[in-house]
C-alpha cells in the first residue's frame, strides 16, 4: 500500500476504528513502516478529538424544552381515555386498511399475485444468497406497480406533504424516509399504503419529472438478501444496512437498499442513464 492509498482510503476509517480483518492488517503494516503516515494518523486523531471537545453541544433552551414537555402531556391526556395509543391506531388503521384491501382486490390483481410470489420466494430463498437472477419477485412487484403507476397513480395518503406521508408510513412500521428527488428534477406526486395478501403493509411513493418517473417501494423484507447479478459499484463493502445494490432488471434500473431493519426499499426507474440512481443517491444531503 502506498501513502496516497492509505491517506485517501484508510486513514479516517482507521482512526474511527472502522477497519477490520484484512483492511486493518494492511493499514497497520503500512503505518508500522511509514513515519509520515504515522504523523498523519496522529493529526487526524487530533482533529477528531478537537471536534469532540470543542464543537459546541448546545443546551436546549428552557422555553423549547418546556413546550416539548407540554406537547408530550397533551399527547398523554389525548390518549388516556381511549386506553393509551392502541385505540387510536386501530381505528385509523382499520379504516385505511379496509378501503385499500377492497380497491386492491378489484384493480390490482397482478400485483396481488406477484405479492404471493414474493413470499413464496423469500421462504424458499431468503437468506441463502444463491438466488437465480432471472426471477426476483420483489423486483417484479415493484416493476409491475411501476408500470401501472406510470399511467395512473392514485395516492391514498390525503396529504402530499412529505412529513404526512412519512407519518403514514411509520404508522405501518415502514421507513419514515421520503426521498427528495427535486434536485434531479422529479416532483413528488404522492404516497400510497397498501397491504400484501398476507396483510403486511407496502408503501409506494411516486415521482414524476420531465424525462420520466421514479417509484419507491417499501416493504417488509423477511430476510431477503441482495440477489446476484448486481451491477458493479466501486467502494461499497457489502453486508451493511445502508448499502445500495444496483440492478438492470427486465429493462428497468432497480436500486435495492435496507433503510431500516426488516424492511427493503426498491427504487425503480426507466431512465437509461448509467449512473442515474447513483446520482440521486449522491444528491441526498
Amino acid at each position: 500500500m502506498d501513502c496516497t492509498t492509505y491517506i485517501e482510503k484508510y486513514l479516517s476509517a482507521h482512526v474511527d476504528g472502522e477497519l477490520s480483518g484484512e483492511e486493518l492488517r494492511d493499514a497497520e503494516v503500512h503505518l508500522a513502516g511509514c513515519v509520515n503516515c504515522r504523523a498523519r494518523f496522529a493529526e487526524e486523531r487530533a482533529v477528531k478529538a478537537l471536534l469532540r471537545e470543542r464543537a459546541a453541544m448546545l443546551r436546549t433552551p428552557p422555553m423549547v424544552r418546556g413546550s416539548i414537555l407540554a406537547a408530550l402531556d397533551a399527547i398523554d391526556s389525548a390518549d388516556a381515555p381511549k386506553g393509551a395509543t392502541r385505540g387510536r391506531d386501530r381505528s385509523g388503521g382499520a379504516d385505511r386498511g379496509g378501503w385499500l384491501t377492497m380497491r386492491r382486490a378489484r384493480i390490482w390483481v397482478p400485483a396481488a399475485l406477484a405479492a404471493m410470489l414474493v413470499f413464496a420466494f423469500v421462504i424458499l430463498h431468503g437468506g441463502s444468497g444463491t438466488t437465480p437472477a432471472q426471477a426476483i419477485p420483489p423486483f417484479d412487484v415493484a416493476i409491475d406497480n411501476y408500470k401501472q403507476f406510470v399511467d395512473h397513480f392514485e395516492p391514498n395518503i390525503k396529504s402530499t406533504a412529505p412529513a404526512d406521508i412519512s407519518d403514514a408510513y411509520m404508522e405501518h412500521e415502514l421507513p419514515g424516509f421520503v426521498w427528495n428527488f427535486q434536485r434531479v428534477g422529479y416532483k413528488l406526486i404522492g404516497g400510497r399504503v397498501d397491504h400484501l395478501t398476507d396483510g403486511t403493509p407496502v408503501a409506494y411513493t411516486f415521482y414524476r419529472g420531465d424525462n420520466g418517473t421514479i417509484l419507491c417501494t417499501y416493504m417488509k423484507s423477511h430476510g431477503l438478501q441482495p440477489p446476484p447479478g448486481e451491477l458493479q459499484q466501486p467502494d461499497q463493502p457489502s453486508g451493511y444496512a445502508g448499502v445500495h445494490h444496483y440492478y438492470q432488471y427486465k429493462g428497468y434500473r432497480v436500486c435495492l437498499s435496507y433503510p431500516r431493519s426488516g424492511c427493503i426499499c426498491i427504487l425503480v426507474t426507466r431512465q437509461p442513464m448509467q449512473e442515474f440512481i447513483q446520482d440521486i443517491v449522491d444528491s441526498q444531503p
Binding site: A13, D16, K48, D235, Y240, G242
Partner: peptide, 28 residues
C-alpha cells in the same frame, strides 16, 4: 454524526440513508 454524536459508520449510514462507502468517503 461521527465525531460529535459518536455514531458508527453503519449508524450514520442508517441516519442519512446513504451507502456506507459514501459515508466513509464523506468523513474522510
Amino acid at each position: 454524526l461521527v465525531d460529535v454524536e459518536e455514531l458508527s459508520y453503519q449508524e450514520v449510514s442508517g441516519v442519512l440513508n446513504v451507502a456506507i462507502g459514501t459515508i466513509k468517503s464523506r468523513v474522510s
